[in-house]
Write a protein that binds this DNA or RNA. Structure first.
Lengths: 204, 204
DNA sequence: ATTATCTATAGATCTATAGATAATGC
DNA sequence: ATTATCTATAGATCTATAGATAATGC
């Protein structure tokens, strides 16, 4: 009973905050507006969330669920192209609906992933993807020019850059944009061209 | 005389702010600390800068000067590889010294480039690079999978991701990290593989 | 005398916390 | 009776602005 009430209040604050974020941005909005919309006191917000940004972290966690599920269910034999195509489609489905939150979500994500130390930070998608990349590298299906987890971060970042670029230029269909971004990464991350790569790495 | 005084105060606030940012981060620090360090009132800070973030925008502008100069001086015949190599080396020189400001600088940059509308936003490097990419695309030296300015944004973002990844894993030399990132992009952005690309774009 | 730079300060907003209320567990 | 949830509120910090000071231009 108490738990249910607590969760209901928290949920109301969560949804109210996202609404206000979509309109005014995380930095631009007042916590009072969120609290009023959720019909609780401002202090109740602080009881449930340490800062405004933590609401977005919750949102990021929630937004990752379908993509994480999808990646988990892919068979071990999945190729790089299949993996990335599936991930991109799933992420696009989420963010196409939430373009207004994209920039705030991404900057909060960068900040928290950077502040918390190293590779522990980030959500399940980052970890699942890094693991897949490691497996693919071991099977020789991935360029060894960079460590698999770095490549994986690079890929996820590119997708977000593609999403943001789409947010600016919505005349391009999102799917076109993301598939092209994916294609660019795939061609770059192919395990071919070993000679020039080795030369560059060896230089230092 | 008055102008000189003004610039001196502004400069003191600027340097004090960066110092405080390096220690506490943009979000974590108090404007009072900056003002005290610069030996002026807190309101003097607001006279010179609308927000703490605007100090970082100034810093970003300053940090771009050498790279922008370099790009401007490259001959029209410069290849994609030469352009990117030069840009990466110049950016690496700046950020290697300012790793502590990297994450804050990047998030501020994203936020402001995203908030101000479209392609007008951003510093000279973004525009010079976009122009060069356009020229290279016209000469057929660049994949036409995405618009040249989008490709250019993608490249710059990748460099920053590489820089941040290096900030987390400083056992890898920065130069190795960035050259590898560059190589990955170069291979992806080569104007080869036209068949699969066309198919993907045509799909939607 | 006018104007630019900066300070002092009022009001807005945030953050921390003491205490009220109502559910829980004994 | 104890504890979790939430409110009221005090203190910290931010932001806006009225006014002081000193340089500038006439």
């Amino acid at each position: 009973m108490r738990d249910r009430q607590r969760e209901e209040t928290r949920r109301r604050l969560y949804l109210a905050a996202l609404d206000v974020f979509r309109r005014d941005g995380v930095q631009g909005c007042r916590i009072d507006d969120i609290a009023q919309k959720a019909e609780v006191s401002r202090a109740a917000f602080y009881f449930h969330f340490p800062t405004k940004e933590h609401v977005l972290l919750d949102f990021l966690a929630e937004s990752e669920v379908p993509t994480a599920k999808l990646i988990t269910e892919l068979p071990a034999s999945t190729t790089l192209e299949q993996l990335l195509t599936a991930a991109v489609e799933s992420m696009a489905a989420v963010w196409q609906k939430e373009a207004a939150l994209l920039v705030d979500a991404m900057t909060v994500s960068i900040r928290h992933t950077a502040v918390l130390d190293d590779r522990e930070a980030g959500g399940p998608v980052r970890h699942l993807m890094a693991q897949r990349f490691k497996d693919l590298a071991a099977r020789g299906e991935l360029s060894s020019i960079l460590a698999p987890d770095v490549l994986s971060d690079l890929f996820l970042s590119e997708i977000f850059v593609g999403l943001m670029a789409w947010g600016h230029a919505p005349h391009t269909p999102l799917e076109t944009m993301l598939k092209a971004t994916l294609q660019l990464f795939l061609q770059g991350a192919k395990p071919t061209a070993k000679a020039p790569v080795a030369a560059v790495v060896a230089k230092k």
